[in-house]
Design a protein around this nucleic acid. Structure first.
Lengths: 307, 307
DNA sequence: CGATCTTACGGGATTCGTAAACATA
DNA sequence: TATGTTTACGAATCCCGTAAGATCG
């Protein structure tokens, strides 16, 4: 005993054509079926909507009133559904990206730029936080996707590997390690090192690598900013290890970066989402673009050799 | 393959309770049936609206988006339908009344006042036109109801008799006719008469009565305004005939009105509507009030006897 | 008599409810 | 195991299309 959208549609067709048979054709309906629809609608409203004479159909006063209402209602409905469809298609909405600082500095901006070009009406927000915090934001629902190093022991996360972020050594261009031969853990051990602060993601990565390979280096300096590290290196006071991803925004003149040629001297950067909750639709195209840019990066890795 | 209002209703219930079973009870539906509704809605939108875990149901991003849309849509829908219902109930809208001048001056204002008190949101408009014009307005659709003397030979009109508007004689209080005895056509014939202009409805009524009763009077004066007629009568230069309905707004001091005691010396005032088109809903209560006031008028007719 | 809406009625699709299966805390 | 959702399936309902009926020009 409720009104149906079909009935409104049928009503509008009859009001438009002022003919039951024409309206029936327009609605892809038999004329009696359409007639029944109008009848039901009139029964619900408890008022005639049309005056039917044998040769002419015309709107009643109630019909005219309902016409306005029906028009605005369907317009509203269509606009609203279109809105939702756009949202579902990922063309509209908000996408919160949480990225580890190194990713937020180099990789993610490219991806966001490409994504925003394709989806200009999606409001993309970027948080640069330590990877732990990124995962935490994901779990709390305050981020839709995280770009961060792979996290172990996390059944609730879906982690899609994007690319490998290799660990490497930075030294002066005239440093012995800058020569184009393989650089292993053994080779860097003799030199004085500058490392990042304990809090930094980079330091944790580097420390994890040290631990995994049983390497013990000489931390001559511990600094907070990458710039300081580079200054020390440029002054030939130390060498340092950094993930390759950090080089993107760094002035490397006079310096050289050499990947450490150990099988596992890298971390896997992933696009991370919650497995439990369906992601915002915009996440899917965003991840597609992530993968595309990751593929590009693998195909043409950054190389910083002495010139 | 279209969205249904039931589905939206069901969605809102689930979004509200965050439980399929509670929502099912709320919607008077079995839980699987409700589940199917949600499923169909999700199929149409091509997106999940809820994340269902065994113990917890939560909205997805799309669900939250759709929630806003669904809320405003149902609000709109309900408000609109309420609007239409009010219109159907005659509580809102516009009512155009066309009334013959004598009715517009006396009877109709009372009716409109009473009607507007009961239906304050109906915009009542009154046109005072000659009865022919009233009927014409009715036929053209520019009036919803007419209050006018009965019109003959009109199959397309529905005329509801309200009351009889008696023809009477107006004379000075000291005139012989003012004595309290029956006044017939014969009695008034000897006196000089003042009549209204040919264009006036009153004149047509009076002439019709003359013709019907085979009476030929002496039209000593022909005037345009009732005031002039009364002046001539007060000066004892003539007597005149007027329908009783005109007395309502007239200062009768020094004058007397006597109904003509002939069986047919009246015209029937009707509420007239078009038979072909369903009337604006407000017409029905308006006519009810018309009948009530007409009954009052019959019960307590105006009497203007010399004091 | 022809055009158009209404009524009558049988068939098919949709939707519902019951019962069983399934999934997690 | 207990709670809550999904799947399966028979049944009731709703809606549509065809055919006949009614009405007016």
């Amino acid at each position: 005993m409720n009104i149906s959208l079909r009935q409104i549609e049928v009503f509008l067709a009859v009001a438009d054509t002022l003919s039951f048979s024409k309206a029936a054709r327009q609605c892809h309906l038999s004329q009696p079926a359409l007639s029944a629809n109008v009848k039901r609608l009139e029964a619900v409203l408890e008022a005639r909507l049309f005056d039917r004479h044998t040769r002419k159909v015309s709107l009643t006063a109630v019909g005219r009133e309902f016409l306005q209402v029906a028009k605005t209602l369907t317009e509203n409905m269509n606009a609203s559904l279109e809105r939702v469809q756009d949202f579902v298609a990922g063309k509209r909405g908000r996408l919160v990206v949480a990225a580890a600082p190194s990713m937020a500095a180099s990789f993610v901006p490219e991806v966001i730029a490409a994504f925003s070009k394709l989806h200009p009406n999606v409001d993309v927000r970027l948080h640069d936080e330590l990877s732990d915090v990124c995962i935490q934001m994901l779990r709390s629902g305050s981020a839709d996707v995280a770009i961060a190093p792979q996290t172990p022991n996390t059944q609730d996360l879906q982690q899609v590997a994007l690319f490998r972020d290799h660990l490497g050594v930075i030294c002066r261009s005239d440093h012995p390690l800058a020569l184009p031969s393989a650089v292993g853990w053994r080779a860097i051990q003799p030199f004085a090192h500058v490392v990042m602060n304990k809090d930094s993601g980079v330091r944790q990565f580097v420390d994890a690598q040290y631990a995994r390979h049983g390497v013990r280096l000489r931390p001559a300096f511990e600094v907070t900013h990458v710039g300081t590290m580079l200054g020390l290196i440029a002054a030939n006071l130390a060498i340092g290890e950094l993930p390759e991803s950090l080089l993107q925004n760094i002035d490397m003149t006079g310096l050289a970066f050499r990947r450490i040629s150990s099988a596992a001297a890298y971390r896997t950067i992933c696009a991370v989402t919650l497995r439990a909750s369906s992601p915002t639709p915009a996440v899917a195209p965003f991840m597609t673009i992530c993968k595309q840019f990751a593929a590009l990066r693998v195909a043409a890795p950054l190389v910083h050799l002495p010139t």
